Amino acid sequence: MSGFSSEERAAPFTLEYRVFLKNEKGQYISPFHDIPIYADKDIFHMVVEVPRWSNAKMEIATKDPLNPIKQDVKKGKLRYVANLFPYKGYIWNYGAIPQVCARGEIIRVKVLGILAMIDEGETDWKVIAINVDDPDAANYNDINDVKRLKPGYLEATVDWFRRYKVPDGKPENEFAFNAEFKDKDFAVDIIKSTHDYWKALVTKKTDGKGISCYHHHVNLPAQYQQMWISGSITRKTDGISLEYKLILLHPTHLELLDAKVVAFQSFKFIELI
C-alpha cells in the first residue's frame, strides 16, 4: 500500500536485525499501534512480515519501542521453520493485522473465513482473506468461494499447520470445529473482539505484561539509535500468549502473513491475492 515504507537495521539472520516501518512523512511508526485496523468498510489492513518459501520465523517485537519486525529467538537461538515435505519453508507470505495485537509492505484485504487451530492448549485463529487489489477479488466473498474456485488450498493450509512442528519433535497440532473453516461473519466477529482487547491495552484498561505502546515518533529514541549502530543490545519477547496471523491464498499459490498480537488468544489471517 502506498504511503508506507520500511527500513532495515543490522544484518538479516542476526539477533540485532530489525525492520522499522515509516509513514508517508518518513516518520517511524509502530505496525502494532499506528496503522488502522480498517482500510475501508469491511476491508482490513495487513502488514507483511515473512516472504513465501523462506524459513526465518519473523515477528513483531511487541515489547520493543515502535514494535519493529525481528527474528524470533528461543533459548538464545534464532528460530527457523523446517522444510516439511512437499513444502519449502512457509507456504504463504506471512504478515500481521495492525491493532489486534511486517517485511513491511501494507496491503488491504477482504476477510473470507477462519480456522481455529489448537496450539499448546490455546486457540490460534487463522483468518482467510483476499487482497482487494487482486484481479479475482470480486469473485471471493466467503469461505465457500475458496472451496469452489481453489480446490485443495484450504486442505493444504490445514495439512501445513497440522504438521509444521513435527520436525522439531513436537506432536501434530489439533483443530477446533473438526478442522472446518468458519464463514466470513464468524471471522469478522473474532477480529472485532480482538481489536477490543487492543483498545483496552492502549487505554491501560488491561495489563499488557510488558508490551510496548510507544509509537508514532518522528525519530527513533536515542537508545535505539545507539542500539542499531552498535548492534550489541537485544531484547526478549518471550511470554506473549496471544498471537494472531493472517494467511493469504493466492489464485496460483498459497500465501501466509503472520501477525503476532497482544491479548489473550491467538489467531492468524489468510488472504487470496
Rank of each mutant, 00 (worst) to 15 (best):
E243R: 03
V73W: 09
P68A: 08
P12I: 14
L254F: 03
D145S: 09
P167K: 03
I247E: 08
A259S: 13
L154I: 14
A96Q: 08
G208I: 00
S241D: 02
I233K: 14
F269T: 06
S241Y: 00
L254C: 01
I229K: 15
K75V: 09
S230Q: 15
D238N: 11
Y164E: 02
P65D: 14
F85D: 12
E243Q: 04
D133V: 08
Y94V: 07
D72E: 13
N67M: 11
Q71W: 09
I130K: 06
S212H: 13
H45N: 15
N83R: 09
T237G: 09
V81Y: 06
F13W: 00
D64A: 12
M117Y: 00
K245F: 00
Q226F: 08
K150A: 07
Y164S: 02
A176R: 10
I60S: 04
V132C: 03
F85L: 08
G26L: 13
R162N: 05
V132Y: 05
V47Y: 01
L248W: 06
F44Y: 14
V48M: 15
P221G: 12
G113D: 06
Y90K: 00
P86V: 14
R52H: 01
D142W: 07
Y90P: 01
F186K: 03
F4M: 12
L15V: 09
I114S: 03
M117T: 03
T237V: 11
I130Y: 05
K170F: 06
K57M: 06
D64F: 13
A222H: 09
D119C: 01
R18Y: 04
K260S: 02
A116Q: 09
N23H: 13
I114T: 04
A116E: 13
I233A: 13
N144F: 12
K165V: 02
G3H: 06
G231M: 14
N173V: 02
E105C: 00
K245M: 06
F177T: 07
V146L: 13
Y197R: 05
K70W: 12
K110L: 10
T123R: 01
A137T: 08
Q226Y: 07
Q265S: 02
I130H: 04
M227F: 00
V166L: 03
T14V: 06
G152F: 00
R148C: 04
D119S: 06
Q225G: 08
N144Y: 10
S230V: 15
D42Q: 00
E172L: 01
W160M: 02
S6I: 04
L21H: 10
D258E: 07
N173Q: 09
I247D: 08
V109N: 01
I233V: 15
F267T: 11
I240Q: 13
A179L: 11
I233P: 00
F175K: 08
V158E: 01
A56D: 02
L256N: 01
D238A: 11
N23L: 15
F20Y: 15
Y214V: 15
A82E: 10
Q225V: 15
Q226M: 13
K260T: 06
I130C: 14
K268Y: 06
A263P: 05
A179N: 10
L15I: 10
D134E: 13
A263M: 09
K245P: 03
M117P: 05
A222R: 10
P221I: 14
V218T: 11
W228G: 04
F264T: 07
